[in-house]
Write a protein that binds this DNA or RNA. Sequence first.
DNA 1: CGCGTAATTGAAAAGTATCAACACTGGTGG
DNA 2: CCACCAGTGTTGATACTTTTCAATTACGCG
Lengths: 198, 198
Amino acid sequence: MSELLKMIRVNQEFLNYIRVLKSSEKGGVIETIEARPTERIIGQRAPIFAVYIVQKGLGKCYLTEDSGKDFIQEFFSEGEIFGEIEMFNNDLSFCAVEALTDMVIFKIKKEHFYELLEQDKKFNRLVLKLLAAKVRYTALRHSFNQSYPIETKLVRLREQVPQLTSLISKTDLANYLGITERSLNRTFNNLRQRELKT
Amino acid sequence: MSELLKMIRVNQEFLNYIRVLKSSEKGGVIETIEARPTERIIGQRAPIFAVYIVQKGLGKCYLTEDSGKDFIQEFFSEGEIFGEIEMFNNDLSFCAVEALTDMVIFKIKKEHFYELLEQDKKFNRLVLKLLAAKVRYTALRHSFNQSYPIETKLVRLREQVPQLTSLISKTDLANYLGITERSLNRTFNNLRQRELKT
DNA sequence: CGCGTAATTGAAAAGTATCAACACTGGTGG
DNA sequence: CCACCAGTGTTGATACTTTTCAATTACGCG
């Protein structure tokens, strides 16, 4: 697993292109909305009428299982899109999306999203690319998550995101890793102790 | 989690369309290949020059972690495509694909795949759709896998695939669930005993 | 100050992996 | 035809990991 598994996903290339579109003559179809921390942008099992692209800020995409447990699929930041999965199969959303910080978000209504896909080759290509990246990311993360002990996962995360615990709450972290907060704490403590000894 | 999570994936709509293409004037770009059980069709971390669509048979898509553990991403059957993820970002393959039964497979070379995407709107649309379905499937499976005990997972699988153990080896089953064979056996035994008592 | 949410901890219980031994199968070659 | 082999499946005992539960503390904010 030498593959890169970013915890907080971004897609600068896509964001740039959305900005280009926004300032073009057809830019009218791209709205801008805002969200404050804890605000839910889309709910789980809800019909979806638009896609959203993060312009600024940090959000989480999570789903609540029947057992009551939450599982966080991904944290997304600049350039990441959501709501698009549901567009293609007319599904209800399988994730809820919630803001963790103040966010600024582009919003494109369903019908305009379709139009763009049909009429704008570059847009079409970027969406294909980003879907492929999502599949890859999700698949690799699942495999990694199943194959290594908690400690390894935590060490990885800290390497990537040094400010880990200040950015993301312990509760969210635990739900991202699919473990309990108790286990998260114990592992943190073990790591800390071991680091002091050396 | 009332969502449907098929263990063995199929995509009849896509397969039908590939067949239509194959018998059209441009059908020449679609080759047919075969594979026998245990044969590896693509290797992990290999460059990919074509996409493959299953016409008949059953295959598994798995990846080997540094720890030596195998993790099975999915089993695919008729109409499922693989190799496409790597096309869009010019990545090396992150999964190996291996035949479990005799297989017949359509093969479309990279450049022709691109052409189809650009020139055939319906093909383009079907690929978008199928990528979205893959994201959804992978995400839901990950969540489910992390959130429930082994027993629940097994019960689910058996409901879906009654002939489970005759179709898929215990080793593969364990690797699909991300558990050891020992745990798989114990859980099967527990279930069996409990069913006898009632 | 007081409320609610998030974080922390210990002890006990439950779940899973590890390991090592053994059984079953189908194919291979002497 | 039998002995052997490799791969797969099975099991018990044990050690380890993780969750559960409940009790406590810390923190931000009106």
